[in-house]
Design a protein around this nucleic acid. Sequence first.
DNA 1: TTGTAAGCGTTATCAA
DNA 2: TTGATAACGCTTACAA
Lengths: 355, 355
Amino acid sequence: MADGPTINTIAERAGVSIASVSRVLNGLPTRQETVRKVMAAADELGYVRNAVARSLKSRRTHQVAFAMADVGNPAYLAMLRQIQPVLKAAGYRLVLHSTDAVVADEIDVLHSLGERYVDGLIMSPLRVTEAHLQMLAAARTPVVIIGQVPDGTRVDNVRADSRTGVRLAIDHLYALGRRRIAMVNGPLDTVPGAARGAAYREALQDLGLPYDENLVQIGDFYRAEGGRAVAELLARVPDVDALMCANDLIALGALDVLRAAGRRVPQDVAVVGMDDTDLAAASWPSLTSVSLGSAERGKAAAELLLERLQGGDREPRRVTVPPELVIRASTAGEPVGPGGPGAGYGQRTDEGGKA
Amino acid sequence: MADGPTINTIAERAGVSIASVSRVLNGLPTRQETVRKVMAAADELGYVRNAVARSLKSRRTHQVAFAMADVGNPAYLAMLRQIQPVLKAAGYRLVLHSTDAVVADEIDVLHSLGERYVDGLIMSPLRVTEAHLQMLAAARTPVVIIGQVPDGTRVDNVRADSRTGVRLAIDHLYALGRRRIAMVNGPLDTVPGAARGAAYREALQDLGLPYDENLVQIGDFYRAEGGRAVAELLARVPDVDALMCANDLIALGALDVLRAAGRRVPQDVAVVGMDDTDLAAASWPSLTSVSLGSAERGKAAAELLLERLQGGDREPRRVTVPPELVIRASTAGEPVGPGGPGAGYGQRTDEGGKA
DNA sequence: TTGTAAGCGTTATCAA
DNA sequence: TTGATAACGCTTACAA
């Protein structure tokens, strides 16, 4: 297979210099006749500009990287779905990294910015270590961090507010008359686990409800573990009337177990999840869930990055996306069929699978 | 912010030529003393090789593109999840394109291969047009197509077998004693709609069941539309005892409507979905679904591409991934709680959302 | 309006 | 073992 045509090939064919070819290709003032010849030659040869050579010269790749912890995690995918179109519209290609929840991989990605294969990076790290901060300070490439960074860190930063999110949910349950509100959490040594646990305690306090250790059950952020945790909880505290679950998968596990135990949801026990993933709308009863605004965070991050890419230097900015309580059947009242409250009709047609 | 160091900076600092620097960096035979000096200089300067310059010289970018129709579609995401680690392990970066189901965008992506910003492409087109075939024939970059291409097309090709998939489901329903098996399909002018509709008809025929037009309902591949279609169907054919749904979302809509109508699933009506998305395991009752092997197709495509990237030329290959019927509660018997059949425990911990 | 030539940061050839 | 030098394909002064 022969090599592809370059501006040299075209120049030769059109009988002009490579400079003229470049001018025509870039729409710089050129004699009509020359334009014609060059365009003709380019057309005939099926010429396409070499992006690598252009990048070397221009020092811009028109690529942006998004480093997420886990390609399988719906929260990151929600970000991805928003980031992609924003970048595409601005003429940037998206390079996707999955760091598999390994800190060393995240550092690798930051280090690789030195290779200059992207103009910018959006990263959503699990937690920000000292190593992260060092790399960030040294980076010559614009970075936007989705997550918590220490105050004063000079990076654009988009954050969620899971504390307020938990409070929204607890207030909602309280307003429904629930007073024995349990927390089913993931491990406390994770950032979300710790934050959500603390927020639960605070929210109870502000409502004047006692903090009862028996009402707190630690499991893991998966469905089966969530179910097990809830089973233990029910055995210990049979009079529990609401479950605040630290994510949607735990909540799904809770629904499984409550159903098996013959407890009606929401009549006997109300259930709230977090993250508002697709699964929340799909489950039955559909699941009330605290959206932490993954989609909005993705969008905000992409926009911050573009701003910096196009606008040049400015002070680092911080955006906090407010949480939102999405009320569905698991707390709202009677579980209902199509068209009823919380069935989620018409909300997410973007999930459609035609393949 | 000063420019980053290049081999020139290092050469100067180490007091050697750029050629020596390059040799050291590439591990070519060099005097120990020179190696030491160069490494020291590189370390002090925090030097990282410029990927763009290397690509220009080597004509390899170590990037591969994946063009999917829709970042929101779980089937493509399942592919992505498999493709990503395979490429990463082989040292390739992943460039993600979303063509938004627009044919012109797919052609654009194929055209952009001429820019040589990637070494290869995996594409999952909605349907393959004449324009696609022309671009493919002209492409100087290895391409793997996930989907149907005409026989004789000279591309690596990975395909599903939805025909056999539908048959598996119908056979399953038949074996359960169902005889009034309806088909709830999406639009017939889509590739999956047409294929699944035809396969339904064939499967009935082979089982000696009559093809009854009343049992076929066309809607769209979304939950609300699926629900509406099933409502119409129930009104017209009250004695239907099984629903073959053309995808999982339609099946979820079916569950909504059946529940509202007081029909028990699966006792009164059995329900089967297609694509085996996350939603199938999350719904209640959990949904029997035909997996078309999205994950396996993604993996196979990535492997085919790597083979060609690393191994050089060979004849185009075709891989067909067999479908698989994943039996859950919506056909299997009593809907059950945790631990019971079809509850999906321990199957998909990769979905866990900690964020 | 056009061509010559330098340069983007590498790698690789060829003499020394 | 090393350095000077020519690519890779493009953009852009600078001269003509």
